[in-house]
Design a protein around this nucleic acid. Sequence first.
DNA 1: ATCATACCTG
DNA 2: CAGGTATGAT
Length: 692
Amino acid sequence: MDSPTDLFDDSAPQIRTFAPTLNSTDLAGIHPQANAGRLTPAFRPPGFPLIHHLLQPGGGPRRIGGLLNTSLSTHRHLEDRNVEEDEGERDGHVEQRMEGGDEGAIEGKDDLLGVKKRHNDAALAAEWNQDILKVKRMKLESRQRDGEADEGGKQGGREGRRREREELKEQLEEARERLQALQEKVWRAFGEKHMAEDEKKRKRRNGSSGGVDGREEDVGLIEEEDMTEGMYDEEDIDGGEMEKESFSLLSESPFDSFHKRKEELQKDRERRMERGRGGGGLHLEGVMEGSGLWLDCGGLVRGDWDGGIDDESEEGGQKFAAALKLELGSAVARVIDRVLRLYTEMTDYAPSSPPAAISFLPSDPGSDGGKEKAVPTHSSAHLSPLTSIPLTQTSPCTTLPCLVLLPFLTLPSCLQPLSPRIPPPPLSTRLQPPPLLPPLLSLRLPSSPASAPPLPLPLLHYSMQQLFSRSLHHPQLPHLPSSRKDYLNSDPFLEFSSHPSSHPSFPPLPLLGHLDPSLARELYLTAGGISFCQCEGLSPCHLKKAKLMFFYTRYPSSNTLKTYFPDVKFNRCVTSQMIKWFSNFREFFYIQMERFARQAVREALTRRESQLRVGRDTELYRILNMHYNKSNIYQVPERFIEVSEVALREFYSAIWTGRDSDPCWKKGIYKIICKLDSPLPDAFRLPGCPVG
DNA sequence: ATCATACCTG
DNA sequence: CAGGTATGAT
C-alpha cells in the first residue's frame, strides 16, 4: 500500500504505453471484433454453501436435532440431577438422555432454513413453557408444603414467617425475572457451554445410570439446585479441559476463590441436606441456596441465611429477610451496573486480536479427542461446519441488546449466568455447536423477517482484527499495546483487570475477539448507549475530501492519508476504510474508462466517429466530475483529465488489440496509472475539506 | 500465515 | 460504498 508501484508485479503482461496520437482508425484493422464489447469474465468459484453442513445427509438434522437435544437435555439434566442430589451423588455425572425423536424430525424438508426457524421457534416456546410451568410448580409446591406445615399444628406465629418466605420467594422470582432478562441477553451471545458439555457427557456416559427416581416433593427444589449445578457444573471445573487451560492463566484469580467457594458450598450443602432432610425449610433453603451462589457476589453471608432458617427465631428471620431484600435489590443493581460497566469499558478496550493463550482453538488437537482439526481461519470456501454457527442475519447496525461473551469458558461467579434458576436461554439462541467444538457464539440477532442463511463465524479471521482495532487505539488507554503481537504476548486478563474501573470477576474482553466482525460491529448495548460503532472518525466530509484527493492521487499510501487527514485518528479500521474508499474510487474510475473505451471501440468498428479524449465537455468528464466532485465546487485539475485520458486510451488499446482476453489485462493499465499520481496541494493538509 | 488489493455483490 | 472472497506477495 505504501508503495503503489509494488502493486503490480513483473509478471504482468508487458504493456506499452498507448501512443497519444493513436485514434480509433489506427487500430481498426487489427482489432478482433470478437472482443468488442466483451467483458472479461470474472472467475467466480462456486460458493460454498453456508448451510452445507445442513445439507449433508444427516448433517442438518443432526445439527438441528442436537440443538434440541441440548436444550431438552438441559431439562433432563436438571431432572436427572434431582435424584443424584437426593442420593448424595456428587460426581456430577448424569446421563444425558437423548431426545432421539427430534433427530431427523425435519428430514426431507425442502426448506431447511425455514424448517429450522420453525423448529427453533417451537422449541423456544416449549422451553419457555417448561420454565413457566416449573416456576408455577415451585410456587404450588411451596404453598402446599407451607399449608401442610400450618395444618400440622405449627404455631400461629409461623404464619408471619410463612408470609415472609412467600414474600421472599416472590422477590426472588421477581429478581429472577429481571436477571433472566439480563441473562437472556448474555445467553443470546453466549451460546451454551452445555451444548458441548452435554455432548461429551453423552459420549462418555452412554449407558450409565439414567434412572430417575424423582420424589415429587423435591422437584422444585432440586430443579433449582440443578440449575445451579447446571451453571456450575462440576465439569466446568474439573472436567473442562478447555476451561482449565484457559484459566490456568489466572494464577490467583477470582476463579480460584470461586472454585474454592464452590467446594465449600458443596460441603455445606451436604451437611445441611443431611440435617435438614425432610424438614419444612428444605425447599426454601434449597431455593435460596442457589441464590446464594450469585448472592456471593454481593457478599451475603451464608451464615445469615442459615441462621434465619435453622434458628427459626422470628428475629433471625426478619433479619435475614431484611438482609435478603437489600441484597436482592443491590445485587440486581450491581449486576446490571457491572455488566453495563463492562461493556462501557469494552468500547474503550478492544484488543486487536484475541490472545493466543485463551484462544478456544485447542492447542493440542488430541486433548479433545483429536476430532477437532484445525479450523479454517480464512477462506469461507472451506469453512468447516465447525465454524458455521447459524445465525439470523440482520441489517447493519441493528440494535442488539445482548452481551457477547465466550460461552464456553467458565466465568467467574459474578458473570456466570446470574441466577442459577434462570432458565436456559431460548432455544433459538442456543444453536447447536459443531460436534466437540465449543460454541463460539450463539447469537440470534433481532432479526428481520427475512432470515438470511446462517452466517459463518470464521475463527480468527483477519478481518476480525478490524473489529478490535476500532477501539484499540483509544486515546484514553494509552497504556494498551498497539501492536497485535505485543498484545499476544501480554496477559489479557491481567491487562484487563489492571484497568482502573474493571471488575476482576469479569472475563477478559479479548474473549470477545471470537466474533465475526460483521456481527460484532453490529453490537450495541442499548441500556447504556454502548455500542461498537464502526470506524468512528470518518465523516462524509472526509469522504468528500478523499474524492477530491482522488483527482491527484489514485493510489495514496497510508502515510499520505495520514498526512492529509490530520484530523482523523487513524487506526486499523479507519485506515482500511479509507483505503477501501480509494479502492472504490479506482474501481469506478476504471469501470468508466473501460466502458467508454469499449464504446469507442464499437464506434470505431462501425466507422462512426469516436473520441479518445476526456475534455471538460465530454460525457466521461461529466460522469467523473459528478462522482468525485458532486457539488462541482472544486476545480477538477487538468492533470486528472490527462490521466483519465491516458487510462481511456490504454483501455481502448487493450480492448482493440484483444489483450482483454487475458484475465490480468487490466493489471498493466493499473501499473501505468499508478505512476501518474501527482502531489496533493497543500490545502489538503489542513483539516476538513478544502471546499467546505 | 499475514496482508493488501482486485473483483464481485448488494 | 461496504462486505466478502480470491489472489498474489511477503
